[in-house]
Design a protein around this nucleic acid. Sequence first.
DNA 1: ATCCATTATACTAATATGAGTATAACGCTG
DNA 2: CAGCGTTATACTCATATTAGTATAATGGAT
Lengths: 112, 112
Amino acid sequence: MRPVFKIWLENNGKVFGEGPLEILQKVEKTGSLRSAAAQMGMSYNKAWRLIAALEERLGYSLLEKRVGGACGGGSKVTPYAQQLMKRYSELKEEAEIVLEKLYLKHFEGFKT
Amino acid sequence: MRPVFKIWLENNGKVFGEGPLEILQKVEKTGSLRSAAAQMGMSYNKAWRLIAALEERLGYSLLEKRVGGACGGGSKVTPYAQQLMKRYSELKEEAEIVLEKLYLKHFEGFKT
DNA sequence: ATCCATTATACTAATATGAGTATAACGCTG
DNA sequence: CAGCGTTATACTCATATTAGTATAATGGAT
């Protein structure tokens, strides 16, 4: 038996979490939302709607989007999004450690 | 913006969490799974299948079930389930406190 | 002007989830 | 032994979520 947890941010509905973090990280690497989605095995459509929904609830844009041009365009993570990513990922990392400890504390010697 | 989290236990699939905890608590109060489900606005059918699935994955029974008899029967939470409930609810309570602190630490002064 | 890869968005289809309905079996009580 | 309210379980139907498909629009490069 093992503990599992998820932590995310809400404003008026979900605003940030593990999935969005991974998408933005891949956008940083690839330079476009389309290829980020492809790398995750996710349809571009889904990724786009997800980001759009988050942006609307946040009131800030996460991606600076260029459409058209030499290579069709691309997306860049905004400074605001970079902050969110950094803070959220650190929060999550520490939460993992702390929760694992809490689990051991409370479930030590369990199983009758 | 606020943090939200969920924590649950897995074995071969979900084995315990907030929903099951609430059901079992209501069984303790009402003496039957049927009325527990009713109090939660959940169909008996759903509640029964949920508990049955958990029991199978755990390898232990959570409810001691009597069928037939004076008042039709009823269910009682097993000692094993009581331990699970106690440990899980304490774990969750402490996790809430700790995670709220972690959130404040990491998101202090956020919003640009 | 055409091509290209991308963003942007609407519309449809598949799937998963959950709710509801139905029915059997059980066993105490009167 | 008939009635009652419960557990136990199968089966169908509605609904919500998600995935997929299609199509436009953009703008620099050739």
